[in-house]
Write a protein that binds this DNA or RNA. Structure first.
Lengths: 163, 163
DNA sequence: AATAATAGTTCTACTTTTGTAACCAATTAG
DNA sequence: CTAATTGGTTACAAAAGTAGAACTATTATT
């Protein structure tokens, strides 16, 4: 709790608040124009690429969306055969969602599609800045993931508390 | 070199796609619960803190929202006395929007509010990771701003250049 | 001067997301 | 064994964002 820490925290928050609209601008629009999925479904697909299976509650917790919304998004993904429902034999209330092979390959090509414009712009960066950006985004992602999604509140054993 | 660039670009895109939902989760919800502004209005306020004045078109371009939406968001901000309309004497069609003193101070306290939970979590990071995160977010922000908001497509005269 | 183009507003229709509440089935606790 | 809790679905209302046409006023083009 030193002076220096507070300055760092403030600058982190300041920076993240600036970055957020930039990312929205970059991705959301091309998601709508270039895919037949809505952004929410794509976020669900995204977390499923990073976790083999997740329950409905866990998905909602990680993406901060109401369970009812998760249901409708997963329904859409199932209609596209991108994910599947797996019923947990140990607790038959739980629905585990798993991405399919088709879902994985589709997600890859969708990523290509929606990042096409960004890719063109990144290509114009000099090698040094590009490498800086590569390292920096990796660090932000890694640290933010441990900070934002704290394991204790989202996992199946001690599950996400809904208020 | 080309090889290496493509790897970097892919990892940047991969990372940004992971970061985006994390930021949404972090900010959007508390914006709704802790302020009487909608997220869009807050984004408008945000860009106005970084640019003394912007025209309606420039705001829409920077945030990738239709001009009609910008109109309604600015209307809300004016009702809260956080911004003001300034008519350009040189071209009376243009409406320049400027953040007020109240807007600036309000935005600061809103930032405090909506980042409170994140702040608590950041405080638990050790000094090294916090400083890493501080530097990395700054780099991401700076480079992304030059990449995402390309000057030529946003300006009316020459006013869209980001530094 | 006539016409085209631009900046912004208003209007309407639509999609997406959020927030509840009611409900069922399965599990856990007393 | 009841009673309470949990995970998930369904249904509905409301907020927020998206998209585009029609319109006014102003400026630019010719």
């Amino acid at each position: 709790m030193i002076e220096n820490d507070n300055v760092s925290i403030d600058s982190v928050i300041e920076n993240l608040i600036s970055i957020h609209p930039l990312l929205s601008k970059t991705f959301t629009k091309s998601i709508r124009s270039k895919t037949n999925l809505n952004p929410g479904s794509l976020y669900v697909l995204g977390v499923l690429t990073r976790h083999d299976t997740l329950s409905m509650t866990e998905i909602g917790c990680r993406l901060s969306m109401p369970k009812s919304h998760v249901t409708s998004l997963v329904d859409k993904l199932i209609a596209e055969e991108m994910v599947e429902r797996l019923f947990d034999p140990k607790d038959r209330r739980i629905v585990n969602v798993k991405i399919t092979e088709k879902g994985l390959t589709d997600f890859c090509s969708i990523k290509q599609e929606i990042s096409q414009e960004l890719r063109l712009k990144l290509e114009k960066l000099d090698a040094e800045r590009l490498s800086t950006l590569s390292v920096a985004t990796q660090q932000v992602k890694d640290i933010l993931m441990t900070v934002v999604v704290e394991p204790s509140s989202c996992n199946s054993t001690d599950s996400c508390k809904e208020k």
